[in-house]
């Protein structure tokens, strides 16, 4: 009997501490400067939202855009984020702050999977969309998280957000240039299509364009990719065709903007120099 009392005490303490600590830790994110934390804690209002996966995260200089346009620009992009997930962020944004002036969508995220939902599960408390998507895609995580709320916070993105309580968030550029070997390796090996639209993403993209067409200006675009990718990819044409069909003429193809490899950190991502050049190009082409 005494032994089982010990188990009960441990379980009770675990449960109480789990709830209290997870609440404290999660609440502390209101002081975080990470975009996703600011979005859900009332500090994420912007005139222009930029949405996408790593290619949006690395290709748009939020600070430069804000300064040049004299508007608040927010890059709400994440590495590997799918459009299905980003769609939740857009509607959560609208629910909290109302409609932004413009939404720029870097459409490569239509080919991304839903892995990022796992990494952002700590926003479970704040977003019904995230909660539902987690329940649907990662049932196991959802159940464990229900048992221990601390588990919801056990992600690198939460730690990143927590870190940004103490250190100000700066959108990090990529450095270095893509190497000749990397290009050669890519040209030699079998081509793995990158721009393949995932159906769930496409449906959400379509819905978003339809729902918001009268309220927000939605601009879809493909940011620059390296020459090597452009030369080898065959799926880009149908990819663009499908996106154009739902974009209400607001689609821009920047994929072949840079011929020079010096703008690229790897075959799919611009480096700091490329990011600056591309951001300036966007300003002149889309906003002036």
């Amino acid at each position: 009997m005494k032994n089982f009392k010990v188990i009960l005490i441990v379980l009770f303490l675990f449960y109480m501490g789990d709830r209290v600590f997870s609440k404290i830790l999660f609440s502390s994110l209101k002081y975080s400067s990470l975009p996703i934390a600011e979005l859900y804690f009332g500090k994420g209002k912007a005139d222009i939202l930029i949405i996408g996966n790593s290619r949006a995260y690395r290709h748009f200089d939020e600070k430069l855009l804000s300064n040049e346009l004299n508007k608040k620009v927010r890059v709400l992009a994440m590495q590997g984020a799918s459009f299905e997930f980003l769609n939740i962020l857009i509607f959560d944004y609208i629910n909290i702050y109302g409609f932004p002036e413009k939404i720029l969508i870097e459409v490569s995220c239509l080919s991304s999977g839903n892995d990022q939902i796992q990494n952002n599960r700590f926003m479970y408390h704040k977003s019904e969309g995230i909660r539902n998507m987690l329940k649907l895609n990662y049932k196991r995580d959802y159940i464990i998280g229900k048992l221990s709320n601390l588990f919801f916070l056990n992600t690198s993105e939460f730690l990143n957000a927590f870190h940004k309580i103490f250190v100000n968030y700066i959108q990090p550029p990529l450095f270095g240039e893509v190497s000749k070997n990397e290009i050669q390796d890519f040209m030699n090996k079998k081509y793995k299509p990158y721009f393949l639209i995932k159906n769930n993403n496409y449906i959400k993209f379509n819905n978003l364009n339809e729902k918001l067409k009268n309220d927000v200006q939605i601009i879809s675009l493909i940011s620059p990719t390296s020459k090597a990718i452009i030369e080898r990819q065959v799926e880009m044409i149908p990819f663009i065709k499908r996106i154009k069909s739902v974009s209400h003429q607001n689609f821009y193809d920047f994929s072949d903007t840079f011929d020079d490899y010096r703008f690229f950190s790897d075959l799919l991502h611009l480096n700091e120099e490329g990011r600056d050049a591309f951001t300036k190009k966007i300003i002149s082409k889309l906003f002036k």
């Binding site: 600590f21 830790l25 601390l150 056990n154």
Partner: peptide
């Protein structure tokens, strides 16, 4: 008891 409870929290969180 304290040790095991703390370890359980840490396993769950980190």
């Amino acid at each position: 008891i304290i040790q095991i409870t703390i370890l359980l929290w840490l396993i769950s969180f980190l």
